[in-house]
Every structure is written in C-alpha cells, then in structure tokens.
C-alpha cells in the first residue's frame, strides 16, 4: 500500500529525514517510535504533504502512485488521513460544515455523488458513537476552545467519517489523560480492517497498550535503525532509547 524508499527531507537548510525506507501492507498497523527530534513528526508531515518540508531524495508510492507529486487535498482524496498532533482551531467553521465540505470534495474527486443532508447526518450519528463525541461540540467552531481530549477525539471522529485507507496518527497520545487515551484508542481499533493501514507515531509505549501494532520501528537521526514485533516497544519502554542510539552509532 505504502512504499517509502530512501526518503530524504529537510526544512529550511536542516535535513531531518535521511534515507528512510518503510513498507506498509493493507491492514497493518505500524508504530514509529523514537527519541525527540528523530524525525517522527516530519515523516508524518511529509506524507500528508505539508509544504514547509522539501523532499530532496527518495520516493513514496501510495498504491503504486507517486504520492510526492500530489497536493495535500489529492492525498486526502486518495485515502490518506493525518490526525494532527496539534489540531488547528478554525473560527467560524463548524465541524459539521467542515466535514460535509471535505466529504463532498473527496466524493467529487472520486466521481461519487454528493451526500445530501439526510445521508450526511445519518452517517455522522453513526460515527459519533465510535468516539463518544457530543453533537453540541460538532456544531461549534472547529476545535475552537476544545479541550485537548476533545480535539483528539474530534480528529478520530473525522477519521471515522472520511474512512481513509491509510491513517497516520501523529503523537495522538500527547496531552491525553488515560481515559481520553482509551476512548481515542477504542475509536481507532474499531476502524481497523483488513484494508485499512495505520501508522502510529508516538514517543511513548503507553498508546501501544491500547492500539497494538503489528510492527514497531525506531527512528533515529532521520532513519529507521531498528524494526521488530510489538515486543520491541516494551523493550524500549524498559530500557529507554540510549541502547538504540549506541547501536546506531556503531553501525554508522
């Protein structure tokens, strides 16, 4: 589904991703872990198409297409979803209105009919249950004045509505208490399917207790330096990142 090979990316003059390769198949959940500054969020941003990042080498294929050639909105229409670490407040635009516009734009891109108000509301009601989100929150300006937990739940709600093929969760656990974390993780788990893949970017193992990954990758200095099964996350939790760093320095 997603094939990243030898990816290099920089912001300004600073190279952050330095030769990263990763293969993700349908239905898989991959956790990307690593110390601060390793390039985890940069990877998420590059995949979603954030323009501040310049790709200087390598390739990213999504279902055989060159992802790097696509505008962010095309990537979304093709089925990529980024749950933001810091969801943006958008005054004057309600979540409902925002999502309706987004869904219909995506449907237009795919040559599908527009959803009418009734169909849209029905779908919304269905997905609201997944993340236990309140109707009143959705009629307010998007993310404006939302608590940290509400913002993250809103991200997962949007994900449920848009039904992406590849979801990228960028530090979704940051700033969440354990209850909010559980609700968010439950939402993500309910969306797991043999067709849908997920990249979970996180600093801590905590989230992976709830969203159990198929693979864990450790990112360090812009490259994946170690990959393994879910038990690798536990090992990292126990031993920290220093041994990985040491190993990586030796191998360099």
């Amino acid at each position: 589904m997603l094939s990243i090979s030898n990816l290099h990316a920089r912001i300004g003059e600073k190279e952050i991703v330095k030769g990263l390769s990763l293969q993700i198949n349908p239905g898989e959940v991959h956790a990307i872990m690593g110390p601060n500054g390793a390039g985890k969020s940069t990877l998420a941003s590059v995949l979603a198409g954030r323009e501040e990042y310049e790709v200087t080498g390598g390739s990213v294929l999504f279902e055989g297409q060159d992802l790097l050639e696509m505008a962010p909105e095309e990537r979304a229409a093709e089925g990529i979803f980024l749950a933001f670490q810091y969801p943006v407040e958008i005054p004057g635009v309600s979540t409902t209105n925002f999502l309706k516009t987004a869904m219909n734009e995506i449907r237009k891109h795919r040559g599908q009919d527009q959803l009418d108000a009734v169909q849209f509301l029905k779908l919304m009601k269905e997905k609201m249950k997944l993340v236990n989100i309140d109707q009143s929150l959705l009629s307010r300006s998007l993310n404006e004045g939302f608590s940290g937990g509400e913002k993250k739940r809103n991200e997962i709600f949007q994900m449920a509505m848009l039904e992406p093929k590849l979801a990228i969760l960028d530090e979704t656990d940051s700033g969440l208490d354990i209850d909010a974390l559980r609700i968010v993780a439950e939402g993500v788990n309910q969306l797991r399917s043999p067709e849908r893949s997920t990249i979970v970017v996180t600093h801590y193992q905590r989230l992976l207790d709830y969203i159990v990954p198929d693979y864990v990758h450790v990112l360090y200095k812009g490259r994946i330096v170690k990959s393994g099964p879910k038990e690798l996350a536990l090992e990292l939790e126990e031993k920290g990142y220093d041994w990985i760093k040491a190993e990586a320095e030796v191998n360099q």
């Binding site: 979603a48 198409g49 954030r50 323009e51 505008a71 962010p72 909105e73 990537r75 979304a76 229409a77 979803f81 980024l82 933001f84 969801p87 943006v88 407040e89 958008i90 925002f98 999502l99 516009t101 987004a102 869904m103 734009e105 995506i106 891109h109 949007q158 848009l162």
Partner: peptide, 16 residues
C-alpha cells in the same frame, strides 16, 4: 496552518 489542516481533509486550496 489552518489552510493545510483543511487541505489535509480533502478541501482544495481555493475552497479552503
């Protein structure tokens, strides 16, 4: 940042 957020949800730049 708001523009990017909207685009990442599938809303084209001009519409956003």
């Amino acid at each position: 940042e708001a523009l990017f957020y909207m685009r990442s949800r599938g809303i084209p730049k001009d519409e956003a």
